[in-house]
């Protein structure tokens, strides 16, 4: 297997605030290959978005990447000077936000904005640039792209705006797209349309994609692999099917149990008790310990990220389902 396009090892991004150090990301490791969608799943405050911003180099004070390694196509992102990082951003790594108006300027026409995004990185003639923008809009399934180019953002619906934002991200045919909750604000039918386009793009263009979301159901159908984040850490990574079928980490199990469609109608949902801990004041050891049904004394020690099954990594002293998988030695404390 070729080297992964992006490798993040033990990333730590902390925010040094008045009230204390917020360990927004506190030990996140994952990797993405070309032609692959990695879903990063976590609840609010789990640090999944900050992990995305850290890769993009968009963490502003009081936040700082304090530790860890991020390698993109052999380039050490942490050691990269600002100037080169800017060159990389938008051209080789692009980002799509939950709110497309984060990317779009409401007072400029779409073509102006797209051409600007193009000429920021490459020298290109006006006619060529326009043609390229039109192609990008067509690629994300916008009907009549030539006409829509001269429209203003407010003339688009929410779903269309998100398509335009994705088209802008695609302009330079980046190697990696980081998408932060891009379909959360959209309706089901519109979300499906966008998921459809994204799925096509990733597989036909051999791009890598980080799909950050709180909704396990969305990535279940889209991502090749999933990384589950909890309280700043990646607690489990592995191929989507295996994680959904047989979660190893009790938190993943709880998350899956919480999704209504999985339980029998009318029965109680298998909820996770309690609430996520404050990133200001994480519990010692495993952060999930206070909510975990399987917690023992040993969980007071922080579990290391280890390969629990082939291709499946996790941070847990008591991973589930391992006995059934025929590797009982790992399950024992």
């Amino acid at each position: 297997m070729a080297d992964p396009l992006l490798v993040v090892r033990d990333l730590r991004t902390h925010f040094f605030t008045r009230t204390g150090v917020v360990k927004a990301v506190d030990g996140a490791s994952f990797s993405v290959n070309r032609g692959e969608v990695l879903g990063i799943v976590g609840e609010s405050g789990s640090g999944k978005s900050i992990a995305g911003f850290s890769i993009m180099g968009l963490v502003d004070p009081p936040g700082r990447v304090v530790d860890g390694a991020m390698t993109f196509d052999g380039i050490d992102l942490r050691a990269l000077p600002d100037e080169e990082m800017r060159g990389l951003r938008g051209r080789r790594i692009a980002m799509v936000f939950q709110d497309p108006m984060m990317t779009l300027n409401p007072v400029l026409r779409i073509d102006t904005q797209m051409i600007e995004a193009l000429t920021a990185h490459i020298r290109i003639g006006k006619a060529d640039a326009r043609a390229r923008c039109r192609d990008a809009l067509g690629m994300v399934g916008i009907p009549a792209p030539e006409e829509r180019l001269s429209a203003y953002p407010h003339q688009f619906s929410g779903g269309m705006r998100q398509r335009v934002a994705i088209a802008i991200a695609l302009l330079h045919e980046p190697d990696l797209i980081i998408a932060d909750e891009p379909t959360t604000a959209l309706d089901v039918t519109i979300q499906a349309q966008i998921l459809y386009e994204v799925q096509n793009l990733v597989h036909t263009r051999d791009m890598a994609m980080l799909w950050i979301t709180h909704d396990l159901s969305v990535v279940a159908g889209l991502a090749d692999r999933i990384a589950v984040m909890y309280a700043g850490r990646v607690v489990e990574t592995g191929p989507t099917e295996e994680i959904v079928e047989r979660p190893l980490h009790p938190y993943t199990q709880g998350l899956i149990g919480s999704v209504p469609s999985r339980s029998k109608r009318g029965s109680k949902l298998r909820q996770i008790p309690g609430m996520a801990p404050s990133p200001l004041n994480l519990p010692e050891g495993c952060a999930f310990r206070p909510r975990c049904a399987y917690a023992t004394e040993r969980c007071g020690q922080s579990p290391a990220d280890r390969e629990l099954l082939p291709g499946r990594w996790g941070r847990c002293h008591h991973p589930l389902h391992l006995a059934a998988a025929g590797r009982p030695e790992l399950a024992k404390p």
Binding site: V22, G45, S49, P61, M95, F97, M275, A276, S278, P279
Partner: peptide, 25 residues
């Protein structure tokens, strides 16, 4: 949007923005 856990003081953390300066506790 705003469920961060048992420390409601951190509700602001849930507001995702590209600009981490907005992270005010």
């Amino acid at each position: 949007s705003e469920t961060l856990g048992n420390d409601p003081a951190l509700a602001g953390l849930a507001e995702r923005t590209p600009d981490a300066r907005r992270w005010r506790l």
